[in-house]
Design a protein around this nucleic acid. Structure first.
Lengths: 206, 206
DNA sequence: CTAAAAATTGATCATTTAATCAAAAAACTG
DNA sequence: CAGTTTTTTGATTAAATGATCAATTTTTAG
């Protein structure tokens, strides 16, 4: 009677809490030892429960990783979109998008690591890795970024460029920061964020 | 007496050939079923040999993955650097860098997948994943890219920007192409390559 | 050609894995 | 509080893993 509509309408209060706890332990496990070593027993150990309990609440290891991936994506996506919506002009929205994306990485490093570990390791039942999976329903982040750029072009504040390529470049520049320790060690997040905003603005300007 | 200086000076001709064969089978295995499922027996099956033979030629599964990673990195690096060196001006070198990087991905998809699978899964003895490993000896590709950009600035053909951030952005834009099926499906490699070159040139221009 | 060295295999080992199950404990319900 | 359902556990299972070893085949050298 409290919160049921999350997954299928069933699932009690305690069951939902336990699921959250397991996913939280999974995040820590993925962050600490990586996907390859993240066995059910390792996750159970960090959650302080038995491995059988994980199997009780998730049909499958893949099911657990699926739910966790969705949770992580939803969380970072809403964080970023919230900040983008508070901006008004295309330029401000673009700045907000970049800044918020990088800020989320900085404030949720373990979540980001877990996300990366799942995306590059987990596979669909057809054995397709997530990182090669062409999501039918467009990624809302990528979609939003595309909308910002298109509206900027339509309003004449952005110049002429290939929309998909520019979107992809921006996304790559954001994601690359976390994945490149050499850069992380050389330039802090605030600097990277402000410099990237400056560079991108110059690249898109009319 | 033929080719020995590769690894330690020892290792016969046949041993070296066998090692290459095993690594080649490992590439196919990683490409087909991913790191998590890439057991020694799966690799052996694809190589048409026994699993014990892999253990004979490589001290360890980690040892195999290490050698393969080095091989893959060296191969793509030399491919790209060769093309960069044939260009003369900073602008041409930058174009060559981008174009060659993307072209290599297009012509060696399985190698690239294998590289990604190893980088995001294999770990050092201290359990540090490669993608979080700050390479002591600077990555030659990143170093070259930095040099191109710096020389362009010194010669006055490139404007003012943060060098590390720009390097990282370019690298991210290149790497992101392979990792984003949505973009791959929407824009072909040639278009992406030429459009990215155009965008980057605009971003760095004085 | 023969003996030594290198290469290769099949069998085997101890471990670890995800998953299952019956039984116990806890929470809920009327 | 008594009965029912939900939650939790410990034990167990079958399968797979990386690695080792003795035995065999192939290659190399003298």
């Amino acid at each position: 009677m409290k919160e049921e509509t999350k997954t299928q309408g069933k699932s009690s209060f305690i069951a939902e809490a336990r699921r959250e706890q397991i996913m939280e332990a999974a995040i820590r496990t993925l962050d600490e030892i990586g996907y390859v070593s993240a066995s059910l027993s390792q996750i159970a150990k960090r959650a302080g429960i038995s491995t059988a309990l994980i199997s009780y609440h998730f049909s499958d290891k893949q099911d657990l990783m699926n739910h966790l991936l969705m949770k992580l994506v939803e969380q970072s996506t809403s964080y970023i979109l919230d900040r983008v919506e508070q901006a008004s002009t295309p330029q401000e929205k673009l700045s907000a998008f970049i800044t918020a994306s990088l800020a989320y990485q900085g404030t949720h490093p373990a979540h980001n690591t877990a996300l990366v570990e799942i995306v590059f390791n987990a596979r669909t039942p057809d054995n397709v890795p997530y990182y090669k999976l062409d999501e039918e329903e467009e990624d809302p982040l990528l979609q939003t970024l595309g909308t910002i750029l298109r509206e900027g072009q339509e309003h004449g504040v952005f110049g002429d460029f290939h929309l998909s390529v520019m979107s992809n470049m921006i996304q790559g520049a954001i994601g690359e920061y976390m994945l490149n320790p050499a850069v992380i060690g050389r330039v802090d997040l605030e600097t990277y964020s402000s410099e990237l905003v400056r560079i991108i603005h110059r690249a898109v300007r009319a």
